[in-house]
């Protein structure tokens, strides 16, 4: 755990710090580009402020949660779940922000005949990409959980072991090797719990984004509100991507390194290489989602 765990922690911290700086600079500039008459629409002003502000608050909370999760507990059982818990904090903050301005775009007694559907606000490409990352994480977790063994102290799901025959004739012998920590059930149980939490928070957040009431009879309000909904949905999906991509990266990287160094058995080495290649894919996804989370777009408003 020491080297790879530290590496993941440093990488995560660096990513978070750089992302926060970029979010503060670029995000605020992009948000200001969403122009409208603030004196006519004070509710939209609050909505815009909450949409951007709570996203930044969420990222700060997520960084704190990630550091806490990585460093908490004997043998760091929550380390692999840290990205998921951090993302849950991000999404939860966005949900709190949306809740605080839930009726800001509503004008009591006035409505438009319109159908607001979640898919109108979801970023299609990012959503597909995050779905792929989720499939990657589930595959990685399933494989590593099934492949894990007890460690040298008998703790289930904390190591990976292999045995092989080497030599010839009278010099032939059976050798064994064990590497720990390995992302078996000791760690992936918490990954599963954190993933459920994150998916629930994501579902609540996206549902709220589509359902939030508004005066659909005012085209200018609809234009700005639609853009803010797209920014919110994008933030939630990007948060999910960071969590899922981060967890997949951690599981695949640590698991892959363990397998590559475990035994001179071609099948085991090949599994390790595939795992490391998966880690590269997860890292690309993590960085992509992280950049989108840090730098909100203008929501397509013109």
């Amino acid at each position: 755990m020491a080297v790879s765990g530290l590496f993941s922690l440093v990488l995560l911290s660096l990513t978070v710090v750089m992302a926060l700086a970029a979010a503060l600079l670029l995000g605020r500039r992009r948000a200001r580009s969403l122009a409208f008459d603030e004196s006519v629409y004070p509710g939209l002003r609050s909505l815009r402020r909450a949409t951007i502000g709570w996203r930044v608050i969420g990222m700060v909370a997520g960084a704190v949660v990630a550091v806490g999760a990585v460093s908490f507990g004997h043998l760091r059982p929550y380390a692999f779940a840290a990205p998921l818990l951090a993302a849950t904090a991000v999404v939860a903050a966005i949900v709190v922000g949306q809740r605080s301005v839930y009726k800001a775009a509503r004008v009591r007694g006035s409505a438009g005949i319109e159908h607001r559907r979640l898919r109108d606000y979801l970023p299609a490409a990012l959503t597909r990409w995050v779905a792929c990352l989720l499939a990657l994480l589930l595959t990685a977790v399933l494989f590593s959980t099934l492949a894990a063994s007890p460690d040298d102290m008998g703790r289930a799901g904390r190591a990976v072991a292999a045995s092989w025959t080497q030599g010839d004739g009278a010099a032939e012998g059976v050798f064994g090797s064990l590497r720990s920590p390995y992302p078996g059930s000791f760690y992936t149980l918490w990954v599963g719990i954190a993933l459920v939490l994150l998916l629930v928070a994501t579902g609540i957040g996206l549902g709220m984004t589509a359902r939030r009431p508004r005066n659909g009879a005012d085209p200018e309000l609809v234009r700005v509100d639609d853009a803010l909904r797209r920014i919110t949905a994008e933030g939630i999906v990007a948060g999910l991507g960071v969590g899922v991509g981060g967890a997949a990266f951690a599981v695949l990287l640590v698991g892959g390194m363990d397998l590559v160094q475990l035994a001179p058995v071609p099948l085991v080495t090949a599994a390790g290489v595939v795992s490391l290649l998966g880690a590269v894919v997860a890292l690309v996804g993590l960085i992509g989602a992280g950049v989108i989370l840090l730098v909100p777009r203008d929501g397509g408003a013109r």
């Binding site: 509503r106 009591r108 005949i113 159908h115 607001r116 009431p213 659909g216």
Partner: peptide, 19 residues
């Protein structure tokens, strides 16, 4: 103005929008 086949908003959405 509302042509045949037009979907009206859901009860929940319209109620929330109008308060």
């Amino acid at each position: 103005t509302l042509a045949s086949g037009t979907r009206l908003p859901t009860v929940r959405q319209l109620a929330q929008d109008l308060g």
